[in-house]
Design a protein around this nucleic acid. Structure first.
Length: 714
DNA sequence: GGCATGTGTATTTTT
DNA sequence: TACACATGCC
């Protein structure tokens, strides 16, 4: 028997060495889920399963890489890296590029992120003129959300509107044709949104013939974070398991926090029915947190009406109780967090063992400023991403029209960057180039089979002919033309034939991708300087993008990888990573999933923040916010701090006054707080906060006095 | 008609 | 901050 199995407890070992057939592992927070799954992979390989016949579906690429790495260490097999690991979306992309032919999907399809989807939605929305009606029509983002909900939950539009978007119910007749057009256009322009990746994978594995081929590629399928999968994903798994019944899913219903992405808890609850003969193993022993932390987290979850009963326990009895700080306002919260972090750092807890968690990306804005001021280095996960910045999208759009010249969204974006070209002219030009014309053979091979030498139609048209361009934009178009030519290795030759000038194209090898990006950067520089305020930073970002690109073999891989697995922190881009650097972690709670730290700080434990007042409309929303707090609390190993700023200057609370008083999060009930140590965040530790305290106005002084005999803001 | 520019406003979470 | 919408300019 392999010795590493001795490290596992009984339940973990049962799961890791389970023979075959469907297996459901209910794994509470910190119960060694990753370890168990990694051991299972190692065990399977040890049993002679070929690594490339194992499919490991995780929530992020990072999680897959970590598990495969751990498995490799355990079983020592060099080829462990051949395990297919990644997110559902990334795996779908990989399979569709191999087997897409069967569904007439062109190999060079472009993956759209949510922003791209919104752009396309907006284009159609404007064209159909629905926006002009007297009623306010749903905005592009709302349309994308409605669409995504509809297809991901496989729910009729009417129901989705009634249930999640009741204020858009009357617009249903306007929405229908937009969605129809949206679907058609994606096909015509070789575009796939995130939902398509799943839908086509589902179609692929349920198709006769090719479906068996795809499914038989894998002997074992393992799925992590199963509580956050949706109906389509469950269907994919059924399709993938028509012959081999070997499927393992791991999850925790108490940590389901992605219902906004149509994840349904039913998948995990109904697993035994969907895969008959399933064995269930429950992991209840928590190895992560001290008992006081676990007790507080359990007390939060005890408020939930419906839940899978499992009692997490830990033998880590010692340790402080979680602390709840009542602060005057956000400034005091910021000061306290900084002091605590530095204190712990002094006590030799490195920064990377500490994390600050919050509900939404901008909740950390004030803290980020202060951290920067005090020279405390940090990485931020979640929130606005590098890739979503408009100048980065501009850069990628140029690459994308070269990669997939039928990508109308990217053309539309790029053309409008040129001075003198707005939406109308852009569309006219696109018409002239033939971007809107679907290649005749209908897709499967039209672009792919053309091979390296032939230039796809729209590019050819751009390089050769002066399509209808307003005079003012002639120069700009010429710049674009030269950029595209340089990036594709095409030479534009002007020759005289029979007295008239003829333009010819000669193809050569494409320059390396780093060179292409440099060229695109050159093209964009004057544009970025013209249209954006803080262009210096943005230009630097574009340069940084070129650095990342250099790591990729092909332009296509680079573009797809960036949309499917965007760098989650700006610092992911720093290259090469300095391992000895110590960074504090800032993260949205969603992005903190699966992580753990010695010390965790949770900001803004106020009603309206956690739970977010966007989510308190129905009880399901409130339940999910509660689970969110639970996830945040259970990230902590040794110390947990929560902060409740009582006063907000936010406009939302403004009612004739400059500020408003908040209420403490409804989840921090008396019972929960009994397990915590409540502290008034005053100025015992630092000059800084003493200084702040002296600035408070009379009202907060009275407030502060009241707090001394326990009266709370209500 | 179509584009550039200015003003007001609403902002969750992510593949 | 980025977007939607309105106005003014060519």
């Amino acid at each position: 028997m392999t010795t590493w199995l001795d490290d596992l407890n009984d339940a973990q070992r049962e799961a890791a060495t389970f023979g075959g057939g469907p297996l459901l592992i209910i794994a509470g927070a910190g119960t060694g889920k990753t370890k168990t799954l990694a051991c299972r992979v190692a065990h399977l390989i040890g049993q002679g399963v070929r690594p490339e016949r194992i499919l490991l579906l995780t929530f992020t690429r990072r999680a897959a890489a970590e598990m495969i790495g751990r498995a490799q260490k355990l079983c020592g097999a060099a080829e462990t890296g051949k395990v297919w690991g990644g997110t559902f979306h990334a795996v779908a992309n990989r399979l569709l590029r191999i087997y897409g032919d069967a569904l007439s999907i062109p190999k060079t399809f472009t993956v759209m992120d949510q922003g791209d989807a919104a752009d396309l939605m907006n284009l159609i929305r404007t064209e159909q003129g629905v926006a002009k009606k007297e009623r306010r029509f749903p905005k592009k983002m709302t349309l994308v959300k409605i669409y995504s909900h509809t297809v991901n939950a496989q729910n009729p539009l009417e129901k989705v509107l009634a249930e999640y978007f009741p204020w858009c119910r009357e617009d249903i007749e306007g929405i229908k044709p937009i969605f129809r057009d949206y679907t058609e256009r994606k096909a015509a322009h070789h575009l796939m949104d995130y939902d398509d990746l799943l839908l086509y994978w589902d179609a692929l594995c349920h198709a006769g013939g090719v479906g068996e081929t795809v499914a038989d590629r894998f002997e074992h399928v393992l799925v992590d974070e199963y509580q956050d999968t949706n109906i389509v994903q469950a269907s994919i798994l059924r399709g993938m398991r028509k012959r081999f019944e070997n499927i393992t899913v791991v999850g925790d219903d108490a940590q389901s926090i992605y219902s906004f992405r149509s994840a349904t808890i039913r998948n995990i609850l109904d697993f035994p029915e969907q895969f008959s003969g399933a064995t269930t193993v429950t992991l209840e022993r928590n190895y992560r947190s001290t008992m006081p932390i676990l007790g507080a987290a359990n007390a939060v979850m005890d408020q939930a009406k419906e839940r899978y009963t499992k009692q997490l326990w830990s033998d880590r009895e010692s340790g402080e109780r979680p602390a709840l700080y009542h602060c005057q306002d956000e400034a005091e919260q910021t000061g306290l967090v900084c002091s605590r972090i530095l204190d712990d750092f002094e006590r030799e807890i490195p920064l990377h063992q500490q994390a600050v968690l919050f509900r939404t990306g901008h909740h950390s804005a004030d803290l980020e400023i202060e951290l920067t001021r005090r020279n405390i280095p940090f990485h931020k996960f979640g929130g606005l991403k590098f890739i979503e910045a408009s100048h980065i999208k501009d850069t990628l759009a140029v690459l994308r029209i070269i990669e997939n010249p039928y990508d109308a969204i990217s053309w539309f974006r790029v053309l409008q960057l040129l001075e003198g070209i707005g939406p109308k002219t852009a569309q006219r030009i696109m018409g002239g180039l033939g971007v809107m014309r679907v290649p005749d053979s209908g897709g499967a091979t039209a672009v792919g089979a053309a091979g390296g030498s032939a230039i796809p139609l729209p590019l050819r048209a751009l390089l050769l002919s002066p399509s209808p361009v307003p005079h003012g934009a002639k120069d700009a178009i010429q710049q674009l033309r030269e950029t595209v030519a340089d990036c594709t290795g095409v030479k534009i030759l002007k020759k005289m034939k029979k007295g008239t000038e003829v333009t010819e194209l000669s193809t050569a090898d494409e320059p390396p991708i780093a060179v292409q990006l440099e060229r695109v950067g050159e093209f964009l520089r004057p544009i970025i300087e013209r249209i954006y305020d803080n262009y210096i930073v943005r230009l630097r970002d574009v340069e940084q993008l070129a650095q990342i690109a250099a790591r990729f073999r092909s332009r296509g891989r680079f573009i797809t990888d960036l949309t499917l697995d965007p760098p989650s922190a700006t610092s992911d881009l720093a290259q090469p990573p300095h391992l000895d650097d110590d960074f504090l972690n800032l993260s949205t709670i969603h992005s903190a999933k699966g992580c753990e730290w010695s010390v965790v700080h949770i900001l803004h434990a106020a009603d309206g923040m956690i739970p977010s007042d966007m989510a308190v409309g129905d009880s399901a929303g409130v339940d999910e916010e509660r689970r969110l707090l639970y996830v945040a609390m259970t990230r902590a190993k040794n110390q947990l701090y929560l902060y409740f700023p009582q006063r907000y200057y936010h406009a939302k609370y403004r009612r004739g006054d400059r500020h408003g008083f908040a209420q403490i999060s409804r989840f921090l009930t008396k019972k929960v707080r009994r397990g915590m140590e409540e502290r008034i965040g005053d100025s015992h530790d630092e000059d800084e906060s003493r200084h702040r305290a002296s600035e408070v106005d009379a009202e907060s002084v009275r407030k502060g006095i009241n707090r001394l005999w326990g009266e709370e803001a209500t």
